[in-house]
Amino acid sequence: MSFIDTLKTLFGLTPSRAEQPTVQPTDTPPVSPAASSSGMPPAAQRRDQVLRFIIEKLRPYQNEPGAAPVGLRLYIACSNPEEEESYRVALRTNQPGTFRAELNRQLADNYISLPKNWPFEYEFFQGGLPDTTYREGNLGLIVLDGSKPDGPPQLARLVTLTGQTEQAEYLLDPSRQTTFCIGRGRTTQTASGRVRTNDIVILNDDDTGFDPAKGAGNGAVSRAHATIRYNAAQRQYALLVDAGGLPASGNKTKIFHSDERMERADIAGMSYPLQHGDQIELGGSVTLQFELR
């Protein structure tokens, strides 16, 4: 201690402290999360992965419209529920037909032409994949061709929602028959003189069991209104409108799809593909729901 400091101590004075410099806080900018290498969100990356996989595997069909597949079935192996949900978002499963439309556009851009209304199916697996036509990583693809049916026939049923039918529901079993006639009454004679037997019977007012309250609108349905036909190669059901169900006969037929689209079935000879949950309206008063089993 110096002499001056000693004197200050004797007189009750303390040495002054050196002032410490004040450090002012500085604003630190937030750290942004690192972007993915592709710059795309996870679902978009998976969508791109699936599209590239399918297009690459179908390159042998470029400029070969006559040999093109009649349908595609995609298998995806997922290691956990989160991964499966990510693929569901990628395939836009909450918007039926959207991913298929995008795939169809990109296939066309690569000169791969599939038939109109070709079916696209997908299925998720936990673990390994079943046997497929093509495989890459966790993706598998089955190419459906028209040479032979793929697997057992697809069962379906029709459930009566409005109007009165002979049965509350009808089983459609392609192993027994592939054409199912819809009309009012059990039988009717067509313009050619042929007797037509309906498989899905809308009760006539003189049929046994007819209830005037339930069947109040049955009279709007033609005796030969429509036909449901099963395509074994595509494992697909379609509605065809017969002469009695067309506007030319003063009648109408509509399909209300499960994605909220309404389709007027008013062209003779045209096949209108049916999907699970579609509702078929006959004559504006009788409604049948189509369900796959």
Rank of each mutant, 00 (worst) to 15 (best):
F210I: 01
S222N: 06
K214Y: 00
D206E: 04
I228A: 01
I200N: 13
Y170P: 08
S192N: 06
N204T: 05
E169I: 01
Q189R: 15
A220N: 11
D211R: 10
A232G: 00
Q234A: 15
A224Q: 15
Q189S: 15
D207L: 09
R235P: 04
G209K: 01
I202A: 02
V221I: 06
K214L: 14
G215A: 02
G183P: 06
A191R: 11
T188M: 14
N198G: 07
S192P: 08
V221E: 04
C181S: 07
S175D: 07
F180N: 01
T179R: 13
A216W: 03
L203M: 06
N198W: 03
I200D: 12
V221K: 07
A213C: 11
Q234E: 12
D211S: 09
R184G: 07
I182T: 05
A168G: 13
R186C: 02
A216C: 12
D206H: 13
S222V: 09
C181L: 09
T187M: 11
R186G: 01
T179M: 07
D205H: 10
Q177M: 07
L203A: 03
D207K: 03
A216T: 14
F210K: 00
R196C: 13
V195L: 13
I228Y: 00
A233C: 07
D199K: 05
G219K: 11
D205T: 13
D205N: 12
T227K: 04
I200K: 08
V201T: 12
N231Q: 01
T190W: 09
R229N: 02
P212N: 03
T188Q: 14
V201M: 05
T178F: 01
A232T: 09
N198F: 10
R184E: 02
D199Q: 08
G217Q: 07
V221N: 08
T227Q: 07
R196N: 07
Y230G: 05
A216Q: 14
R229M: 10
A168V: 01
R194S: 15
Y170D: 08
A226E: 03
G215S: 11
F210T: 04
G185D: 08
G215H: 10
A213K: 14
P212L: 12
E169L: 10
V201A: 07
G185A: 09
N218E: 05
D199Y: 12
Q177Y: 01
P212Y: 05
S222F: 13
V221C: 10
N218D: 03
A216R: 13
Q234S: 07
L172E: 10
A224M: 14
Y230R: 08
G185W: 06
A220I: 01
T227Y: 00
R235V: 00
G183K: 04
K214R: 15
G209E: 06
N204V: 02
